[in-house]
Every structure is written in structure tokens, then in C-alpha cells.
Design a protein around this nucleic acid. Sequence first.
DNA 1: CTGTTAGCGCCTTCAA
DNA 2: TTGAAGGCGCTAACAG
Lengths: 387, 387
Amino acid sequence: MSTTSTTPQTAPRRATITDVAREAGTGKTSISRYLNGEMSVLSPDLRARIEAAIARLDYQPNQMARGLKRGRNRLIGMLLADLTNPYTVEVLQGVEAACHALGLMPLICHAANEVEMERRYLQLLTTYRVEGVIVNALGVREETLRPVVGSGIPAVLVDRLVDGLVADMVGLDNRAAAELGTRHLLESGFDEIWFAVQPFEQVSSRQLREAAFREAMGAQAGQAGQAGQVGQGGKGRARGHTLVLNLADTAEVERSLAELDRAIDAATNAGHSGRGGNLANPGGAARPAAPHSRRIALFAANAPVALCLALHLKARYGADWQSRVALLSIDDPDWAELTGVTTIRQPTYEIGYRAVEFLHERIEGVQTAARDCLLPGELIVRASTSR
Amino acid sequence: MSTTSTTPQTAPRRATITDVAREAGTGKTSISRYLNGEMSVLSPDLRARIEAAIARLDYQPNQMARGLKRGRNRLIGMLLADLTNPYTVEVLQGVEAACHALGLMPLICHAANEVEMERRYLQLLTTYRVEGVIVNALGVREETLRPVVGSGIPAVLVDRLVDGLVADMVGLDNRAAAELGTRHLLESGFDEIWFAVQPFEQVSSRQLREAAFREAMGAQAGQAGQAGQVGQGGKGRARGHTLVLNLADTAEVERSLAELDRAIDAATNAGHSGRGGNLANPGGAARPAAPHSRRIALFAANAPVALCLALHLKARYGADWQSRVALLSIDDPDWAELTGVTTIRQPTYEIGYRAVEFLHERIEGVQTAARDCLLPGELIVRASTSR
DNA sequence: CTGTTAGCGCCTTCAA
DNA sequence: TTGAAGGCGCTAACAG
């Protein structure tokens, strides 16, 4: 397996269409025609000679040159806000597949959560004359997209909208998903639900999820008679809270989590005194919350938030943290199954695939009004929320 | 936040260098010079006019055209075997960063574990005249890389070698890492260690890890007197096994896991009767293995394998599976911290970064013999292997 | 300092 | 059926 034989090769300069023409004893035009599949206009003889010449020279047409000439290079840009989020990677798979199927070549750009990067990449893509871009935007101002959209390059948005920009967009049906999750939690009899989400003023998907959560919490009265009494499990109306977790700022996160801790301790009648709460449970055996405490559940707006919560809870309450708090998350990272966390899986692959299809249509000149494609999430109930 | 105002734009045709020249009342050459930073040869006046013209026309040079002319387009290919593996994504981050720093633009290609895809992408990259490629190879035959390397395009390998190909490569110091892990397990007093790895005949990194594991197991006698007696913890010599897990084939995986189950049951004196073993422990309370049983540990060659093992064990022995078996994994996925699994973290970001640096040097013409850059892994001990 | 002249590799009329 | 000529947007000698 070690690197052994050397690889002696000719290598100097790639053959060009001119070389092939000479080798085949004909003109460049015929070669070009051959390359473009205009076989009907080539005598069997010439065609054979061309074929041979191409093989002999190991010729491969230069996409750049073709692109320069015909004005389309089959390149599309794909701008990703955060590759660290499993969601992103999954969408990417769908994008790759669709591109492959449609003869497109995706230029992947990773903004790594930096608005400045995003701006630069967009500008760079423009420079490569991509035929279109798929954007999982970070910056939400239309202005950032101006260089590309302003140039008439079609764009399709993924997961979130961009303020002031009219464009196709494909993503999760956030309202339905958040409602689905909230309902599940209510029906499972939780008395207190915390919706944890990253700062959401700027990101439409987060905003929609949060709003739908609050709405669903508000609607529970309608389902179970009048407010204050006879909830799902015969208890009263469940309480809902929104917890903002700015993952980019550790200090802020600390503060938010502290607030959550207080709530959990209160609901759980345990009175943990700050840190090291898990030391209070040395036996290691599972100890369910006290019988008369309120059942509390966390609803994470996405996987990164869920992970942050889980890590914190584990650190605070020990490996058995799930006996104290239930966790439901939008997104279905691979560790969800492992830890028994309930999730709402997004059809990520399809989202990516559809995005490329939309873009392709636009590139081909489709002029219809901006379209929205909202795909449903799938609730996957696991131990965390079912006893 | 909803899409509101429309975005009226000129859009028709991008301005070209000729347009700018006309607008600035000068020739194309001066514009070109300006674009290439040859400011010293431009009168302040002309320069100002050019600047203005460029701004007015919102001109952006066409990279394709430049590339065509000067023979270099700043594009490099990045071929990924499997984006599903967190390792890959992490390496990608380093690659992106380095590219950005060096003014390169990475074309990301995802082979999705299909050799045919890999072949096609390689050929496609060639067609776009990338200046170099970074390859996390799937197919290990040099022949696959022939179209690119044969064309004199520099390549650098990541994580694994390609049989018969001489090229720079950067990755983990596999021997050291596997040895580090094995030693840790031995020192922690495990009596039986299973090294789980995907089929490794074809992948150099897996092969090296497995070999180093066996070697380290063999070496324990030297550390603790003679074979058979006085092991690390006063017990006898620990036994080592290799378990091949072909993740691409569910049936095969089932079979391998069954073998593992038998071993665990035996070592653990539990005599689980096949499936549903977890039902035998209904109380839900943690029940450590019987006092006189042998302590058994699993050493996963990478994160996907570790996840497969963990999921299986959890399904079979319940949430408390870690009290029966310890798990150590090369790679440090985000769920490791959450589940308390011990890991050996690879310097993934740096691997990606170094790969690009190597490639860049080659592109710039460096001719030295093929280099290997082996970076060390970092052992992160967690609950799984420490009581 | 500045402009003119050739192409880079390919496609596309337009004639033959 | 075939080929010659011109040009895509840009750079790189050469003159002025």
C-alpha cells in the first residue's frame, strides 16, 4: 500500500481543439461539431478520424473557453452559512445530486457565520460568472445579494428569506413543524415548555418557528375547554417560554442557561444550589423527579441549539438528565437516536434537490412569480418525550 | 420579514473591459494594468478616470476570460469521499480557510462513496482546468487519478494514500494514534479489546490503525513482564480482536455485531439470549457487570464505526450500555462529549489547511520529492473508559 | 506612461 | 458535408 512506482507522464500541455483538428486532418469546426453532438452533419469517415484523434491525444474540451464563448459555463454557486450545522451538510447532498443530474457544477462557498465572508464570496461567484446561486443566507439584507441578483443572476433561497428580496425559496414548513412539536409536547402532558432558539429577529425560519410555538401554546385552551383548567392530562394549562440562545456569545449563553436552570430547579422541586448539582445524586441510580413536580420540556429550534442544551444539562444534572427534562428538537442529528431525543426531521435532501431544480428552471428562463416550496417535517418520537 | 419590495434592476449584460475602456476614454490595456495592480505605471489622472468608470459600470473582471488567457484560473478541486463523515466536513473547513488566505477557489465534489462518481468528478475537474486537486480518495487505484495526475495537475492526498501514486499527503499519524488509544485502554485495565474498523485492505489509514492496534496489543507483554501474568491491573494479558464492520452492507454489519454480542455476553457473564436483551433489565437502574467478569472495551477506528457500535449497543443493552462496554473512538464527533465516549481527536482543521498549503506550493512549481505530513491525535478521556 | 496588436480555446455565422 | 473567418473578455508583448 505504500507509495511505490513513480508515475512518469507526458504532462506538458493539454491538447487543444486545434491539435485535434491537425491530428485528424481537418478543421476546428468539425471538431467543435463533434463535441457538440452534431453527428448528423459528419461523414462516418471524418467522425471516425476525429474520434481516433481525440483518443490519441486524450483531448478534453476546455470548459472555460466554451463558457467564454457561449456565455454559460454550467457553474452555479452555493453559499452556505454554516457547515457545522448538520442540516447544511444534508442539504448539500441533495444539491450535489441534483446538480449531477442536471449537468451543473456547484461551487461551494462556506461563509462560516461571517457576514463579511458571505459578501466576499457572493462577489467572487459573480466574478466566475456562475449561472445562478443557491443561498443559505447569513446576512439577511437584500443589499448583500445585490451584486449577484442585481446582475440578473437567478438566485434561490434555502431555509430562510432575505428581507426585501423576491426570489424562489425552499425550506421546511416552519409553522407546521413548530406546531407539530408543540402539540406533541402538550399531548404528552408537559406543564411547562421552553422554546430555545438562536436570536431570531434576523432569520425568518427561526422567527416563524418561534411565532408558531407561541401560537400553538395559546391555542391549547381551545382544545381543552376554557383556560386555566382541564388540560391534556387533566392538569391546567401548560406554560410556554421562549429562551434565546446566542451560540456565538458564550457569556450570553451562560446567562440564558442560568435562567433555564432556575426554571428547571423550580419546576422540579429540587432546589439545586447552582453548579455541581449532579453531585447531589451520588448513587448513580435513576431518580425521577419528585412526584408532584411539574413536568418540563425543552423545544430546540434546531440541532445546534439542542446540542448546546443537552451538553449543558448533562454537565449539570449528570448522565441521567433526561429524567428531569424532556428534549425535542427540530432537525434530526445522528446523536438524537443515540440519546433518545425526540426530533422533527427536515426533508433536507429534498430541500437541496428542489432548490437546484428551481434554479435550473430560472436559468432556463422561466419567468413566473417567485415560488415558495415548503416541505413538511416528520415527527420522530423517542424516549425523551414518551415517558 | 416577508418578501416585499420588488428588486428592479438593469441587469442586461455585464460590462466588459472594453466598455470600461470606452467609458474611461482610454484603451483596454490600461484597464488591464489597473486590474492587475500595476499602479506605478498609471498617471493619477488616468487612474482616477478608470476608477470612476469601473464604479459607474459596476464592472467586474471575468475570471474565466482571465484564466483562459493566463493559463491559471485559481480554481482547485476538492474531492470528498463522504460528506456524511464529520471528519470530512471538518477538514473542509480548514481547506476553505486556507483557500481563502491563498486566493484559491475550491470546487467541492462529493463522491458519496461511489467509485464511479469519483471517476467522473475527477474527469470533470480536469475539464475545468483546475490548477490542482486535493483528494480524499475512495478508489485507491492510481488509475482513477490518472486523468488528473497524468495531465500534470498537482495533487495532494488527504487521510489516505493511493496505491502506486507518488504525491504529497497529509493526515493523522495513524500508528501513533492507534497505539495511544490501545495503551490507554490497557492502562485502564481492560481485559479484552475489540478493534472495530471498516474493511481496511483498501484504505491505508484504516490499515495502519489496525496494524498498530495489533502491534500495541502484542507489545503489552514487554511492559508487564512475561505473557500470561501480571498485566496492567494485576490481571493477565489482555486479549485483542479485530472486528470488520462493512457499513455499506447491513447484513454483514448484523453478522459482525452478532459476533461482538456473543463476546460481550461471555465476557460479561450475562448470558443474554439473543435479541431483546435489554428487557432482562427492567428495573431501569444501572446494573454494573458482575464483579468477576472480564472488562471489555471497544476501539472504533473512526466516528461512523463508533456511531454504529453505540447505536447497536444502546438498542441491545439499553441506555445504560456503557456500564457493560467501554467505547473509545478515533475522531471526536459532537455526540462524544454528550455520551461520555473517550476519543482521539484528529487535527482536522489543520489537516485541511496544510493540504492546501502543500498544493499551493506545488502549483507554484515546487519540485521536491513527495512529502508526508503526519499530525498527532489528541486523547480525550471521558467517562466511558475511566470508571 | 499609454495604446496597438495578437492571440488563449472554443463556437458560430457564412460560404463553398 | 466541410472549412475559413471572426469574436467572447482578457492579457502580454511591442511599439509610441
